[in-house]
């Protein structure tokens, strides 16, 4: 099919703008990878450079000094990320579906019930004491699963997605056909909301993957440390050993390149998973395909 002028113009603009933004976002990451392999001396003396002046793997050496710990923490992270995301997505979309149903009298009340929690909170002290002393969640896998599990924003966004992409008539006709509330959710809502579920699922997974706050507050047993927190402790112990240690160490700890290497180590795996999510963002879902 031959493209019309307006299409050509639009595509040209799109390619140019998208490329520019992509370069703008990629460039720092390239610099980051390059300099994670730079020596401490070259970073402090010359700053970041586009080509490494003095090549060094000190930072990675330090991170993988105890490979067991790192591998184990990858395991913990993957476990809570997959388990947490699946659970969260299922219950979130279910709640979103409930609030989407127009025949539900209190649907706005429910939305407010969820939303209100983003406005007010009891502060850190209360949260900490409740979780650790009342629920005894400290030093458990549960705490890593539960704390980042639901986000009011995500649930409300899901509700709006369902609202925007699934006409009420579809639900009504299904009801007339004798489908129950739950089977409508499973058979119609879920298949039709795949793009929304993919994006919210992605956000949830990233939330789990990057969560270092929960383990910092609630986990003190090393075998339960997720990846981000292990990296975080490596950084902080390097900072400490450089400032309080009486021991005369004759090499400098690679503090500056460590920051960068940490990002590389923690970003790598989840980046590889991204293309699997992307296939859901392809334009072209038609309601007809489900109706039939």
């Amino acid at each position: 099919m031959k493209k019309s002028t307006d299409q050509v113009v639009f595509l040209a603009i799109s390619y140019i703008v998208t490329s520019l933004i992509a370069i703008f976002t990629l460039f720092p990451f390239v610099v980051l990878i390059v300099n994670s392999f730079a020596s401490e001396h070259s970073i402090i003396f010359y700053g970041y450079s586009l080509f490494p002046k003095e090549f060094s793997v000190d930072a990675y050496d330090l991170i993988f000094r105890s490979p067991d710990t790192i591998l184990r923490s990858y395991g913990v992270t993957m476990l809570i990320t997959t388990l947490g995301t699946a659970t969260s997505l299922f219950f979130s979309s279910m709640a979103a579906y409930v609030m989407y149903r127009k025949d539900l009298k209190y649907r706005n009340g429910l939305a407010f019930f969820i939303y209100f929690t983003t406005l007010f909170n009891g502060g850190l002290a209360s949260y900490y004491i409740t979780l650790s002393s009342t629920y005894h969640l400290k030093n458990t896998l549960w705490v890593l699963l539960f704390v980042p599990m639901f986000s009011a924003m995500n649930i409300l966004i899901l509700r709006n997605f369902i609202r925007g992409s699934i006409p009420d008539s579809l639900c009504e006709s299904a009801k007339i056909d004798g489908a129950g509330d739950f089977s409508i959710f499973i058979r119609i809502i879920i298949p039709l909301s795949k793009p929304a579920l993919a994006s919210i699922g992605l956000f949830t997974a990233l939330g789990y993957w990057n969560d270092w706050w929960t383990p910092m507050m609630f986990v003190e047993r090393q075998r339960l440390f997720p990846l981000q927190y292990v990296l975080y402790t490596i950084i902080s112990s390097v900072n400490v050993s450089s400032s309080v240690v009486q021991n005369a160490s004759s090499v400098t700890m690679p503090q500056e390149s460590l920051k960068l290497a940490m990002t590389v180590v923690s970003t790598g795996p989840i980046l590889l998973a991204y293309p699997f999510v992307q296939k859901y963002f392809v334009k072209g879902i038609t309601l007809g395909s489900v109706k039939g």
Binding site: L124, A125, Y128, I129, S132, S133, K138, M216, M217, E220, Y232, T233, S236, N239, V240
Partner: peptide, 21 residues
């Protein structure tokens, strides 16, 4: 157990406030 340097400000008083273990 350890309270990291950067968490001291937040976590140190919390551990005592919660008084757990």
């Amino acid at each position: 157990s350890y309270i990291g340097w950067s968490d001291m400000q937040a976590k140190y008083p919390l551990i005592l406030a919660a008084g757990e273990d």
